[in-house]
Design a protein around this nucleic acid. Sequence first.
DNA 1: ATGAAAGCGCTAACAG
DNA 2: CTGTTAGCGCTTTCAT
Lengths: 349, 349
Amino acid sequence: MTTINEVARHAGVTPATVSNVLRSRGRVGAETRQRVLDAIDALGYRPHLAARALAEGRAPTLALMVSSIANPFYPEFALAVERAARASGHFVIICNTNEDPLMGRAYLDQIAGTLSEGVLVMNANLDFADLHLTEARGAPVVLCMWEKPNDPPGLPSVAVDFALAGRLAASHLIELGHRRIGAIVGSKVSGIHTPRYEGFVAAMKAAHLTVHAEHVRHAPDTVQGGYAAAHELLSANPEITALFATNDLPALGAIHAAADLGLAVPGDLSVTGITDIQLARESRPALTTVAVPTAEAAKLAVTLLRELIATGTRPSDMAPVLYETSPPRLVVRASTAPPRSARRPSRSR
Amino acid sequence: MTTINEVARHAGVTPATVSNVLRSRGRVGAETRQRVLDAIDALGYRPHLAARALAEGRAPTLALMVSSIANPFYPEFALAVERAARASGHFVIICNTNEDPLMGRAYLDQIAGTLSEGVLVMNANLDFADLHLTEARGAPVVLCMWEKPNDPPGLPSVAVDFALAGRLAASHLIELGHRRIGAIVGSKVSGIHTPRYEGFVAAMKAAHLTVHAEHVRHAPDTVQGGYAAAHELLSANPEITALFATNDLPALGAIHAAADLGLAVPGDLSVTGITDIQLARESRPALTTVAVPTAEAAKLAVTLLRELIATGTRPSDMAPVLYETSPPRLVVRASTAPPRSARRPSRSR
DNA sequence: ATGAAAGCGCTAACAG
DNA sequence: CTGTTAGCGCTTTCAT
């Protein structure tokens, strides 16, 4: 490994000068500068990032906490985060908590402030106390996609209007003429999808439609979860002509369930999701959903984090910042249509 | 930020002792040990990973080079890599090259050997010269899923028998009774899918079936790519009863194309993929495919990398290691069936 | 315009 | 058992 000292010697200068030309900081003579550059080139020198970090008192990475990168939503987000991070010279370390708060804590304990300068958290089922602790220890934390505006997180966050997303999807179904609309709401435990559901309820109420308790099901936030919930829901309530799901994955599962029940989508059943993951456009029938500004949220989150890092602001010093993204928007595709007057009876699979 | 010195002072010992208890290395008195532990606890001390890395002359992370984490295959792999990496105390930095060799080089230049102790490369369209350079600079490189056994990469790698995968899928189709089988092969440029295709050809040959040039199409390795290729291929050659795709994503696209052409899968057309990504089991009809041991490959790759790091072996010192995973295996699902004698004519969409 | 020197937080011999 | 002493590679005042 070639060090800055070797470069210096090779160029007949001191390390300080090399450092100066490297960061175009100090005033360095053109001729010396060139000699240094040549030496760097000749020796194939690359600055040692860890050493630099230590000397500068900063860390070269950002930590991205997710529950599992295998969830199809995260990669799209992670990609956007990485792009934004590179722009500020940071690398991103991916931290899968596997839904386990203890894993999350272990990560935070180890890297926050020592290897990572800040941490971005996506819904990763983390202990808020741990997050506040890592803040207190000097590593800013930002929540990347806060869903509950009425329940401020006490941490800097970027927020997306998910209630609006819920309203948009529900309104679309209602405008199409659906009256008996079922709902599949994900993540009951964390309650993270509550605003989406409330948006749905609000839209129903605005249309003077009642949501029947027996028409809503909670399900894990997966294709499987949506499948099971929809299968059960549709079997028990054949009068339903449309399904509102709080997320794309369960919506996709619902479409599969419909297929297995002999229900055509959108002929016999309309289905909507929320998020607009890549899969939503790539599956058949393509999913009507409400697109959430993922890339924008990622960029905002990184920007916010950078600011916190730069100003060295301890979140306790101020009211937690909350950046809001542009509003989600409806994307109509092939999984929704007006209801048929006559529904085929559902055959059991 | 609390440092090891503060802990030492608080406990009435020297930093060396603190370091010793931290890494349970030196022989430390039980009572002193406890005092140190208490101090650590009281002060909320966490070792500074960058400083430690510098002092130890090693880096705490591994770099994972992928073309784009948004490709549905990578997250599953990345998850397995991360698990394995954690086991050896490494964090993983995700490097999206975006298919651009220059981005790849930029990453390698910056982190290899200084922030990352080693680099794992998934098909990321990297310049081999760059990889050899980073090796020479002291950061071991391992190829995570080498596809071409006959074309040794000159780098330590873990290899998967993709030719076998191709044979398995083709044989399945043949055994089902298909005779006119089309092929959609991905990634023409990198030629990375060649062995898969050769496996297909071998199986056809073994069954005394000829593969017609007009029955094979090259396509980008995406759902879209598979869709377009299949649509064109099926329109032009209605006699085809089965499609062999070298990857799951294009296979899924082919299924969509079939749907749009009014062809039932598997009634009118059988389709196979390779890899068995999560999506393969979650889409409908569920995809018959050949499962590649992703997690195993990830684990092997990390193991191999760790060995290279530990022994400090310069790859030029030895014949490049090549670990082979267990063989891929056929997973029959709902996208394949015996051919119908009478095929419905394809209607144009 | 360049050099000397101190130090970032930690580890690793070696002494005692 | 514990303390002392040197760095790891780089940056950064402060001199010159």
